[in-house]
Nucleic acid binder design. Structure first.
Lengths: 121, 121
DNA sequence: TTATGAACACCATGTTCATTT
DNA sequence: AAATGAACATGGTGTTCATAA
């Protein structure tokens, strides 16, 4: 029946990581899906991390389902016809709460990695 | 055909993490599967990470397939009959090489997490 | 009951396809 | 071609079952 699998509690998942960035980027500037993807790929290139477009859209859709973001379809800056999907907050309190949770997850993940570096080298 | 999927390069995987610990623990003392599991669970309890037994065995079997470790069936210390499986190195150079690779992976993962903490908080 | 292992099922994520502009 | 989205496929990992001592 409604049996749920409990995670082992290893490092945080990519999906959650992307959702965190999406919230922060929405706080800072107006961006749409593929533009966000470009920016993240650029930022993380030096780290060998290259997210794919599907994963990013899934993260976006998660945030919408959770009532944190909503879509706003608008003409892309500078163009005449191309419509793109921007995002804005529906419930900023929820967004902040999510960020707080993720802070804990990041700290925890960092601690696990640091312990491994200490224990094995 | 032999199409392989390329990873996005996010954080390191649990399996690799466990393999690293298995190598280091084999360097230090004679242990068998479930004992290793107990120890790891104890060590990572404060971090909310609790690996399961199957994943640990899979990591062990990986190392065997890769020619790094081999099994040695022995009577469990202090008991008369219970046979358990200990491990020893087949190719210690390979083991060291793997550790070197994982060091890079851990550093990379740590850097990604630290960047996220810096970017989002 | 402890120990090892494999089978199985589910979840996370990468690849491909469809549609629109 | 750029953008969004969904369908599909595969890989990672948690749960369950089998077997032995």
């Amino acid at each position: 029946m409604g049996e749920k699998r409990k995670p082992s509690g290893f490092l945080l998942k990519q999906r959650a990581f992307l959702k965190l960035y999406l919230i922060t980027m929405t706080e800072k500037k107006r961006l749409y899906g593929l533009k966000i993807l470009d920016e993240l790929r650029e930022e993380f290139r030096p780290f060998g991390y290259r997210p794919n477009h599907s994963e990013l859209y899934k993260a976006l859709h998660d945030l919408i389902k959770e009532g944190i973001l909503r879509q706003v379809k608008r003409k892309k800056e500078g163009t005449e016809f191309q419509e793109v999907v921007y995002y804005q907050f529906v419930d900023y309190e929820k967004a902040k709460k999510y960020k707080r949770q993720l802070k804990a997850e990041l700290d925890r993940s960092k601690a696990i990695i640091e312990k491994a570096l200490k224990d094995n080298y």
